[in-house]
Each structure stands twice: as C-alpha cells, then as structure tokens.
Design a binder for these strands. Sequence first.
DNA 1: GACCGCGCGTTTCTTTTTGGAACCCGTCGT
DNA 2: ACGACGGGTTCCAAAAAGAAACGCGCGGTC
Lengths: 160, 160
Amino acid sequence: MKWNDIGNQTCSVARTLAIVGDRWTLLVLRNAFLGTRRFEDFQQHLGVTRHVLASRLKRLVEAGVFRKDAYQPNRHEYRLTEMGLALYPVIMAMAHWGDTWLDEGKGAPLVYRHRPCGQLTTPTLVCSECGEPLDPRQVTPLAGPGLSPGTLPRPLPEAG
Amino acid sequence: MKWNDIGNQTCSVARTLAIVGDRWTLLVLRNAFLGTRRFEDFQQHLGVTRHVLASRLKRLVEAGVFRKDAYQPNRHEYRLTEMGLALYPVIMAMAHWGDTWLDEGKGAPLVYRHRPCGQLTTPTLVCSECGEPLDPRQVTPLAGPGLSPGTLPRPLPEAG
DNA sequence: GACCGCGCGTTTCTTTTTGGAACCCGTCGT
DNA sequence: ACGACGGGTTCCAAAAAGAAACGCGCGGTC
C-alpha cells in the first residue's frame, strides 16, 4: 500500500498520518509550536534537507495546517492555522511520553507553565464526560456513523 | 541528519519519533490498541509489506513498546507493555484530530465508551493542575533540567 | 510417518524517497 | 552596483519501501 492510499482508509488515524505521518513533519510542527516560522529557521534548527523541508511545508499548507503569510515580497512565514493548533495534543502527548519513558535520568528538557492557573503542568488525556484520565483498558471502541464495514481487525458493537 | 541521530537529540519529541515516528509504526500501534496481536493479522489488516512489518515490530520490541509472547513454539503474539499502553494518548490525539478535521461529513468511524463512567467520551488534553483544556497559546515552555544549550529555536526562561 | 497448510519471517529485485550539495533568483542594505 | 540573504529548485548517490517469491518449523490428518 502506498502513502496516499492510506489517507483514503476509513480510519481517522490513517487519515491523520497521511498528512503528518512522518518524522520530519512532526518535528516541523513541534518547532512551530516553539515559535519557528521561517524556512531557514526550520532548516537550520532541524537539520532537515531543504528539499524535504520544502515538500513537507507544501503538504502542510495544502492540507490547511499552515498558512503562508508574506512578510516581504517573495518571503513568507509559515504559521499554524486553527487546524494546525489543534495538533497540539498530538505533539504534547509525544513530548510527555518521551519525558516519561526516554529521559535517561536527566529529567525533561522542557517543562510547561499553564498561564491561566500559573502551575507547571503535565498534559493529561482525560474523559470529556467524567474528567478521569483515560486508560486504554477501560475504553471500548464502538462502530460510529462514518465506519465502513470490513475495516476493522474484529467486529465491533454499534454505538448507542 | 539521519534517523538514529534524531533520537539522540535533547528533545523528547525527537526521541519519541525515533521509535514511533513513521506511519506504519503508528498504524501498527493503532491496531494493537484495537486488539491485534499477531504478525499475520497486522500484515493483512494494514496491507503493510511483511518486510517492513517485521522491521517495525523488531524495533518496537527492542524499544520495550511490545512484548513478544510465545503462544506456541515458534509463534508469538505482540502485546503492548506498560510503556506501549502509555502511547494511548498519542494515538487517541491523532484519532480525535482526524475525526474533527478530516471527517468528510460522514462522522467518526469509531466512537469510544469510557466504561467507568459509561459515557461516550471525547479524549481531551487538560492541565494536570487545574483540569482545564490546554491551549497552546496559554502554555509557556520553560527550560527543564534535561535541556542542553543550543537545542532550541530561541532562548527560553528557566523553570522555577 | 509422509503430506499439507499455516504462521512468521527472510531474500531478492525494482521503484520511491531521502540525504547532500550545488545552484538560482529576487530583494534589501550599503 | 554589489554582495549577502532568504527561500527555494536541481542533480546525483544512498537508503528505504513495495512486491513477490522462498524457507522452515510445527501441528493436524490420513
């Protein structure tokens, strides 16, 4: 199966990965959340080749994750749209996993202050309904309205 | 910069991506959370080539994300470890982003029941301290204990 | 106990995608 | 008018992915 076919699957994870599913794209996004906006800055900070960076930025702009703002004739800044900002939980979930499981005893490279409450925060995934942290063993996936048959490893009950 | 060099950066996202940062790995994990455990099932359901699947599973086992349990001599199941289960927020964040921004008007393919509270849940990233949803514009990254100098696009204040 | 098929890979070969480095081109400052 | 800079594109070699066939131990079956 090829890259673009993946995006056509009936799976939200697959469709998401068709846009952001490679390491450079996700690193570009992480830097965007740290304030990077320009081609040259992404390139130098990440060490990605210009070739690959150009193709990734192009894809992200086409997908609507970045907006390309001219700050001078022929020079642009790549800025996160609302759609792009909505990827924050993905990046933070990865950062937190790395902090927790791969820190090599040195502690997290970055910590985060949540300005509204003033505290250093640990980003936590919770249930929208009861507010408790989500444990995969306590969550049952159900067939939703957009599911086509045969796309799952096993049959699932209907949502209700 | 090459793949493995990325994992040595002082950045939790980069280290995380060195393990799970390609589309097939993340799709393997998504299926693992849906209950898939065997090589043949991953292969057939995802359509990934056997070659690539074998290399991804190998990396995930070496990293400690999967455990390889023999269920017969010479046959194994790949099961998520605690470390692997901890990737749930990453997968759910991607699923939710896809549901929200890429659903093509058909609705989510899957919905999720949180058994402890009984409700259909929307996984939400909140501040561990105040419980409010995290908005990237309201979070200030600070230098943490594990930060080496020069790894950031711009200088950052110290945590404290 | 020979045969068949399954699960789980490995091998081989071809096609895509990266990495690396040079090159291009319009604008800006001087 | 001239050089430097930002933001790419082009070219070639190296690495990774796709496709399909092959290997091999085990378990069931006659």
